[in-house]
Design a protein around this nucleic acid. Structure first.
Length: 188
DNA sequence: CACAAGATTGCCT
DNA sequence: GGCAATCTTGTGG
């Protein structure tokens, strides 16, 4: 179980350590295989322009969930790190509550149940209800990653500013990513 | 397989 | 009024 101090570090560092960690919401979830880091000095970040009603949780204490609605339709789940920074959870390898996830997502290959931030939120039933909740207590349960897998980094997806910042972290070669990594810029 | 477009809401300019 | 850390469906090759 990850404690709040785990998140009291720079977002890229937390991102790296989250690959392979287990994320459950009400017992449904799996292994994190893709995340992105954002911080206050980053023009792509919601926190770049300072606190607003939507992003205020990003400026609160580490170890809480920041959930926002995007494109009016989907939800995205983040883990707040140091104030103004967070990690966007982009993809999971679905492991627990597979039947529940299939019902929520509709007919599709299991590898696409959680292969993107909006899909993941739908599969785990994440919405604004969870915004601001602590990550070290129910309904969340987050388990530390096992060591030994390869981590690759690349540029982030879906943004128009800060496009060169290599703060996308993935489990190398995972079939559960939102998109394959174009080119591994670095292996850790 | 690749690409294009629509859905739909809140926030900022 | 425009755009956003996205997904699905439809078209064409």
């Amino acid at each position: 179980m990850l404690s709040k101090s785990f998140f009291d570090r720079p977002a890229p560092e937390v991102s790296r350590d989250l690959i392979g960690a287990t994320l459950l919401h009400e017992g449904v979830g799996g292994a994190i295989v893709e995340v992105e880091a954002y911080d206050e000095a980053d023009p792509a970040s919601h926190s770049f322009a300072g606190p607003t009603p939507r992003n205020r949780v990003m400026f609160g204490p580490p170890g809480h969930a920041y959930v926002y609605k995007i494109y009016g339709i989907h939800y995205c789940l983040n883990f707040v790190c140091r104030p103004g920074s967070a990690v966007l959870i982009r993809a999971l390898e679905p492991v627990f509550g597979l039947e529940t996830m299939r019902e929520r997502r509709g007919a599709m290959p299991d590898k696409n149940l959680c292969s993107g931030p909006g899909k993941l939120a739908q599969a785990l039933a994440i919405d604004l209800t969870q915004n601001g909740l602590a990550l070290d207590a129910p309904p969340f349960e987050i388990g530390a990653a096992e060591m030994g897998h390869d981590i690759a980094t690349g540029t982030r997806i879906g943004i128009t500013k800060g496009v060169e910042t290599p703060w996308r972290f993935v489990k190398a070669g995972s079939p559960f990513l939102s998109k394959p990594l174009p080119k591994a810029t670095r292996e850790l």
